[in-house]
Design a protein around this nucleic acid. Structure first.
Lengths: 204, 204
DNA sequence: ATTATCTATAGATCTATAGATAATGC
DNA sequence: ATTATCTATAGATCTATAGATAATGC
C-alpha cells in the first residue's frame, strides 16, 4: 500500500511549513490576485525558496486550490452557525453575516479577487465559485420558502429572486467595504437589508 | 507651439488602428484581467505587433487607462439618462439599470474584473474606482433625500445606508449574472429590489 | 516630411525541474 | 532511511526600446 499523504505533511516540521506557506499565499493572493502574486514572492514571505515551496505544492495551481480549500473549511465553520437554523431564524442570522465577514478582511478580499479573476467558464476555480453561489442561493431560497410556509412571510414571495438579491447585497457590500477602506459598513448594511426585507415580505 | 495630440490620432489610419486596439484590449482585459492579458495577445487580436501597439500606447498601464476612460465615456451616456431625473423618478429609473448593464456584458465584466484586481490603495486605477463609487452612492443618497423631503418616501430613512445597499445589489447581481452565465437576471433582480425598497420606504 | 508600423532584441520576470544537501524519525 | 529544503538553471513569457521601413498627407 503506497503512502497517499501529500508531501510536507508527514513530519511536524513539514506540516508547519506547509501551513505557513498557505498563510503567506492567502495573504498575497488576497492582495495581489492569483496572477499578481508570484511563487518567488510567496516563498519569500513564508521564509523558504520557490523550489522549496514547490516541494509542498507541485504547481502554482495546486497551491491556489489548497488555499481555497483551506478558506472554504474556515468559512464552513461560520456558515455552520447559519445552517443550524431554518426558515425565518436562518434569515435573521443572515443579518449578522456582514459582521462575520468583517472579522476576516483577508479571506473576504481573497474571495472577491479570486471570483472576479475566474469569471470565465472552464477552470476548476470557476466551477468552484459557480457551485458555491448555487449552494448559497439554494440555502437562502429554501429558508425563504420555509418562512413563507410557516406563515412568517407572505406566501407569494419569489424565493429565487429574494435569495439572489440577499446574496448580491452581501457581495456588493464586500466590494464597497474593501474599496472604501471600511468606510462603508458591511455589518450595518447587511442588518438593514435583511430586516428591511423581512419587514417588506411579512405576511399581510 | 508643440503638437499635443497623442500618437496615432493624427491620421485616419492611426485613429482607426487606435480604436481597434482599444476594442481588443477591452475584450481581453475583460475576459483575462489586466495581468492576465498580455500586450502580445492584445496586439495580435488587433492585427498588429506589440511594438506597433506601443507606438499608440507607450506603456501597458497607459493602455489600461485609455480603456477605462473609453468605458467611462460610454457608461456616462447611460448614466446621463438617470441623472436627468431627481428624487423618486431617479430611483425608479434605477430599477432599469440592471437591464442597461445586461446590454453590455463585456463592459460589465471589465468593471467587475478591474475593480477586484485593484482593491489595493495606491494605484491610479484604485483611485478611479474609489471615486466612482463615492459619486454613485452620493447620487443615490441625494435622490433618496429629495424623495424624503418631497414626502414620497418616509422622512426617517437612512440615505447613506440605502444608497450603499442599492449600489451593492447592482454589483452583486453583476457578479452572479456573470458567474451563472445569465442564469441569474440582473434586470429582474434590480427591478425587484428598487420597487421593494420604495414600497418599504414609502411615507407612512 | 510626417506618421504609423515592423524587426530584432534587451532585460526582467516567472513557473518548473534536476540533482545535491541538510534535518528528522526510527 | 526518509523527509524537507536548497542551489542552479532551463525554457517560456512579458514589457519595453532602438532603429529601420512602409504608408500617408501636403
Amino acid at each position: 500500500m503506497t503512502d497517499v499523504s501529500p508531501p510536507g505533511t508527514r513530519q511536524p516540521r513539514g506540516r508547519a511549513r506547509r501551513a505557513s506557506v498557505l498563510e503567506a499565499a492567502r495573504r498575497l493572493f488576497s492582495s495581489q490576485g492569483f496572477k499578481g502574486a508570484s511563487l518567488v514572492a510567496i516563498a519569500q514571505e513564508a521564509g523558504l525558496t520557490d523550489a522549496g515551496l514547490l516541494y509542498h505544492f507541485p504547481t502554482k495551481n495546486d497551491l491556489l486550490l489548497a488555499v481555497i480549500a483551506e478558506g472554504d473549511r474556515e468559512q464552513d465553520e461560520t456558515l455552520a452557525q447559519v445552517r443550524d437554523a431554518r426558515g425565518l431564524p436562518l434569515l435573521l442570522r443572515m443579518a449578522e453575516f456582514g459582521a462575520d465577514l468583517e472579522a476576516d478582511p483577508v479571506l473576504t478580499a481573497l474571495d472577491v479577487t479570486l471570483s472576479a479573476e475566474h469569471l470565465q467558464t472552464g477552470s476548476e476555480i470557476n466551477a468552484y465559485f459557480v457551485r458555491r453561489y448555487d449552494n448559497f442561493r439554494a440555502m437562502l431560497a429554501e429558508a425563504l420558502r420555509e418562512a413563507a410556509q410557516a406563515g412568517d412571510l407572505r406566501a407569494d414571495l419569489d424565493p429565487e429572486v429574494e435569495a439572489a438579491n440577499m446574496t448580491a447585497v452581501l457581495d456588493g457590500l464586500r466590494l464597497q467595504w474593501l474599496l472604501s477602506g471600511g468606510g462603508v459598513s458591511m455589518a450595518q448594511g447587511m442588518r438593514a437589508y435583511v430586516h428591511g426585507a423581512i419587514e417588506r415580505l411579512s405576511a399581510p
